[in-house]
Simulated scan of single mutants.
Amino acid sequence: MSVETLVPDQTFAAPVLDGRLDRAAAALRENGFVVHVVDSVADARKLVGELVPGDQSVFTTSSETLRLSGIAADLDESGTYASVRAGAELPENDVQAVLRLGATAEYVVGSVHAVTEEGHLVVASASGSQLAPYASGARKVIWVVGAQKVVPDLETGLRRVRTYSLPREHQRLQEIGQSSFIGKILIIEREALPERATVVLVREEIGF
C-alpha cells in the first residue's frame, strides 16, 4: 500500500497509561538518558526554556511537537537564545547547506517517533538532517515526547513510524503540495556520555 492511500493507525494516537510511561522513563534512565516526566505540554515548554542556556548555539529540528508546543518559536524567534536557524545565512539554493545547518550546534532540541518501554528511541527522517546532531554532533540533545509515542518494544516502535507517523506527516505536507517518505531511521539504544541526552516525557499527546 502506498503512503498516499495509507490511513494512520489510530491505535498509536492515544497517550499511554502512567504505568507504561513510568516503565519507559525508568528504562531510559538505565540506558544513560536524563529523564523528566511532566504533566502537560505547557510544563514541557517551560522546562525546555530552562534547560537551554541563552549563550550556547541551539538548533531546533523540524518537528510538529516543537511547533505545536510553542518551543520552536521560543527558541528561534524570542531573541533570548542563540538560535542557529535565526542566525543562518545560507547560500541560495544550497540544499545540502540547509541539511547540515544543525550538525554541530551545541544544543539540539527535537522529538522522536517512538520510545520503547525498554528505553530505546526511534527517529525517522526523509533527509536525515536531524540524525547527525541527535547521534553525536550536538554537545547536548533534548527530546520532547508525547505519551502517545510510548510503545512496548522496538518492533512496535518501527511499526508506529510506518503506520502512524509517516501517514500523518504525509497528510500534513499534502496540504502544501508536498509529500513525505522515510529515507533514514535512527535507533538509539544507549547514551554513552553522561548528561548529554535528555528526554522530556509529556503525559499529554503532542506531535506525531
Rank of each mutant, 00 (worst) to 15 (best):
S111K: 00
L68S: 11
L121D: 01
G79W: 09
V115Q: 07
Q148P: 09
T156Y: 09
E106N: 11
R162Y: 14
E117N: 03
G110I: 02
E155W: 02
T156V: 15
G110H: 07
E169T: 10
L101T: 05
A126Y: 08
V84G: 01
Q130W: 01
G128E: 04
L166C: 09
T61G: 13
S165P: 03
Y81L: 10
E175Y: 04
D74P: 00
Q171T: 08
R168M: 15
E92A: 11
S62G: 12
S165R: 06
R160G: 06
V108S: 07
E77Q: 14
T80R: 15
T156A: 14
Q174A: 12
L75D: 02
V145D: 03
P167A: 14
E169V: 13
L158W: 08
T116V: 12
L121H: 05
R162M: 14
T80N: 04
R67H: 04
G137T: 08
G137K: 12
R172V: 10
R85P: 00
V95C: 00
E175Q: 15
I176S: 12
I71R: 01
L99R: 15
E106S: 13
L90D: 05
V109M: 11
Y107M: 10
R100C: 08
G146V: 05
V144A: 06
T116E: 05
S136I: 15
A97N: 05
F59G: 01
A105L: 10
E175R: 15
Q130C: 13
G102Q: 10
L173A: 06
R139L: 14
T65N: 06
L158G: 02
G137F: 12
Q171F: 00
Y164I: 11
L154W: 10
L173F: 13
G110R: 04
R172G: 00
E64T: 14
A97D: 02
L90A: 07
E155P: 00
R159I: 04
Q174Y: 01
Y134R: 03
H113Q: 14
L121S: 02
P152N: 13
A73G: 08
A114P: 07
T61E: 07
P133K: 13
W143C: 13
V108E: 08
T61D: 01
V161R: 01
V144C: 12
A86V: 03
L121N: 07
R159Y: 07
D94K: 05
G146R: 06
A88I: 03
R160I: 02
S63D: 06
S69N: 08
R139P: 01
A126M: 12
V122G: 05
S127D: 11
F59A: 11
A103L: 04
G157N: 01
V115G: 02
A82S: 12
A114K: 04
S129M: 10
Y81G: 02
T60C: 15
L154V: 11
Q171R: 15
G128I: 08
K140M: 04
L166N: 06
L75G: 02
S83T: 03
T60P: 06
